[in-house]
Design a protein around this nucleic acid. Structure first.
Lengths: 209, 209
DNA sequence: GAGAATATAAACAAGATACTCACATTTAAC
DNA sequence: GTTAAATGTGAGTATCTTGTTTATATTCTC
């Protein structure tokens, strides 16, 4: 029993050379993200994606060697996007409230296009083959940025990593829940999520009750 | 076109009368929860559940008219459990910290058995047929309990519902994330989640930064 | 021991789905 | 304008899954 190394599976079967094919590939990835977000991994079929992209199934397989390669492409694109948001928010030094505001705004914006894509990618879609490393690397960098922010605003310096993890998963939970209820752009939500972040970051460990 | 009323679909095809059959039904529901949590809705098949329960597929269909009825049973059981946890935590008046501690402890305990069942139930499994109402009713009561706690501890009384929603989804997000990483019983997590709740609930709206 | 309750698993029908291939069309180079 | 490469097409296939039934066997109750 070899350790489950089944397929090297290149990420692209052929590189698109003309503008036409670049557009095709882009349409496929975009449609894939839509299908994944709207129907979930269980309903994610290559035929469905091709149809949603307004492209023949043959064209899909001209560029993506198999289903997983397509998911990988979608994942890479989405994760890159999210990473850039958090990186920007945590970039220069700024007051907590501004950090929170920018983070909330960016995160909500990033989820407004395909509201549940993020969760589907994390929970349902298999991280099996080649994306395992990419996935871990994303998580690591994702946390790093949060940790940087936490270190900057939090007084107590213990447990920075845990705090970062709690903060990030709390934010994601709120956004995911709002996405499920089509409430991503409710202003009260923005405000309250911002307050949650501020309160947690500037809260003193043993505050009086 | 009648408005999509396809099947009345009773929740049980036959009531278990003997102790034996009660155990069978229980085993099926339990195994179903396990499968749902470990493999997700995409891999949830009646045959797989029967096998996981150590029971023949025929026995499953002796009591559950179809797949959805089984999911409904699982959902009802799990939601009842979670509801009792939050209800108890928000019951009598007690200091915020104690409320937070009990809530965290109960919620984590409730998720320790089948770590991702809750999310799968909410996100992946279809709420289609008869469970639509039950689902909504659960959400409503769930929120009510949170709202009661929020009203009790929060100074500012505006946006109580939003605050309750943000709080509950934040807690769920953190727990879900921890569950994914098999970290549900890390003590730092308990502590930080508790602090998050306290900080948010007792945080003053326009705190100085 | 009779009849009801309960359990079994082989079998099926229906559908889904990942992927190929032989062919059509468009683009670009000369 | 001709040609070859690039690109696009979609019916077809082979395989697998899966929900459900049913005829039969076992166990319980009285």
């Amino acid at each position: 029993m070899s350790t489950r190394i089944a397929k090297p599976a290149p990420r692209m079967r052929k590189e698109p050379r003309q503008a036409r094919s670049v557009a095709t590939v882009e349409a496929i990835i975009e449609a894939g993200a839509r299908v994944l977000s709207e129907i979930g991994w269980a309903g994610f079929s290559t035929n469905k994606v091709a149809e949603a992209a307004g492209v023949s199934i043959g064209s899909l397989y001209q560029y993506f060697p198999d289903k997983l390669a397509l998911v990988d492409a979608i994942r890479r694109r989405h994760f890159d996007h999210v990473l850039s948001v958090i990186r920007e928010a945590a970039a220069e030094e700024k007051p907590v409230r501004q950090f929170a505001r920018e983070l909330v705004r960016g995160m909500i914006a990033a989820h407004s296009i395909h509201p549940t894509l993020h969760q589907v990618l994390l929970d349902e879609a298999p991280g099996d083959r080649g994306s395992r490393a990419a996935h871990a690397s994303f998580q690591a960098r994702y946390l790093e940025h949060y940790a940087a922010a936490v270190a900057q605003y939090r007084r107590r310096l213990k447990d920075t990593e845990t705090v970062a993890r709690v903060l990030s998963s709390a934010v994601e939970g709120v956004i995911h829940n709002a996405a499920r209820r089509n409430m991503l752009d409710a202003p009260e939500l923005h405000k309250q999520l911002g307050e949650l972040i501020c309160a947690y970051l500037s809260g003193q460990g043993g505050a009086r009750v």
